[in-house]
Computed example of a mutant assay.
Amino acid sequence: MGKLDLLEINFTNNQEVFYGGQLVQGHVTVQLNAEIKMRRLEEKGDDHVLQPGNYSYPFSFQLPNQLPSSYESSVGRVRYTVTAVIDRPWKFDHKCKRTITFIDAVDLNLEPTAAQGVTQQGEKTMCCLCCKSGPIRAVLKLDRLGYVPGENIRIHGEINNHSRRKMTSSFAELRMTVDYHTPSKTRTQKNSVSKICKGPIQAGGDDIWNGDALGVPPLPPSNLRGCKIIDIKYTVTLNVDPAGPAFDLVVPIKIIIGTIPLRSVAQQYGVPGPMPSSIYLSDHPNIPVKLIMPEVSMSLPPVEYVNVSPSNMSNNQDIPPPAYVESYFGKVDVHDDDDNEHTRGNMEYAPVYAYYNWNEHNTNTFLNVAPKK
């Protein structure tokens, strides 16, 4: 351990989830068991000597209004890190870092198509040896296009199997498609993040989807606004899987995942009226501190409920604040190339996203449990 017993970053009220324009504030704690020569914490300057003891250095800075949401994957990422460095002359530096989550407040009430319903249909003709059989037809209907994590997408649809072949199953699926752009090419990554299945459909038979619930797990919002090299899209599909060698019939509808739900949806669940103004943070004077801004680079486990303080996530005071739940894709290792054995802090991190469960609420809070994978 040497002369340094503790180098730690702590945030006020243990808050680690932030929105545009908010203050990030807290203190850096240093505990020494012997004197140590060092430069300033924030920038190089004259040499200083700290005697043994405990030291606390407060910090506060304001985030810009427009930043992309935190996002982690094996291909690319948007990561926000607060770092404290003890810069020592002619010796290795001591460093501690904490990764925080930034959420871009995507308000579905401001999205023109979020409340609209859509119907899509598809057809596929099967071949049986040398003869064609009748077609398979499928219709998918969604009563709206905008959702937030924690909600259920109600699947309405109909499948008509006019072929002479049995359909092994049908299933509804929420798909996440991420495009990673470079100046020369684009790489696409696809994930199935939620799925519900039904049984076989006999030749000549039909099947009805009557509002079956497809859950939305904790996910980043659509498009990843503010990031020019990563684009996130979500699609709900109704799939029909034929028996034997044949491609599925797939009927897709593109949807929007936001962070602030539709008021009309909140009202359906009897959500209470305006929330108390105490959920908004008061102003504090700014104290300069080193901030590592979003790092975007081109380069999955159970999710857990995360308890954080409420924040001024929106101006929609008639909509209660969400819970925050670890990303569906779980934790990642946040070691960077310039980290070494002297870097302190929790190196396992998962972004957390706004999460609603309309079925469990009272007049003040929402208690949410992430969908099981």
Rank of each mutant, 00 (worst) to 15 (best):
R165K: 14
K166S: 10
S169C: 15
S170H: 12
A172V: 03
A172T: 00
E173F: 01
E173S: 09
T177I: 12
T177P: 02
T177H: 04
V178H: 00
D179L: 07
D179A: 11
S184V: 03
R187M: 10
Q189E: 08
K190V: 09
N191A: 08
N191Q: 04
V193F: 05
V193C: 03
V193H: 03
C197A: 09
C197P: 05
P200W: 03
P200Y: 04
I201H: 07
G205R: 05
G205Q: 07
G205N: 04
D206G: 04
D206E: 07
D206A: 09
W209T: 00
G211K: 01
G211P: 02
D212L: 03
D212F: 03
D212Y: 04
D212G: 03
A213R: 07
A213K: 10
A213G: 01
G215W: 01
P218R: 04
P218H: 08
L219E: 00
S222P: 06
N223F: 06
N223K: 07
R225S: 06
G226T: 02
C227V: 05
C227I: 02
C227K: 02
K228S: 04
K228C: 00
K228D: 06
I229M: 00
I230T: 01
D231M: 01
D231T: 02
I232T: 02
Y234C: 04
T237V: 04
L238F: 05
N239W: 03
P242E: 11
P242S: 09
G244I: 13
G244F: 12
D248H: 13
D248K: 15
V251Q: 10
V251Y: 12
K254Y: 09
I256M: 14
I257A: 09
G258I: 08
R263Q: 15
R263H: 14
V265H: 15
Q267H: 15
Q267L: 15
Y269N: 13
G270Y: 11
V271A: 14
P274S: 11
P274D: 14
P276Q: 09
P276Y: 05
P276I: 05
S278H: 12
S278K: 09
I279H: 01
Y280C: 01
L281N: 07
L281H: 03
S282W: 02
H284L: 10
H284W: 05
N286Q: 15
P288I: 05
I292K: 11
I292Y: 10
I292S: 14
P294M: 06
V296E: 02
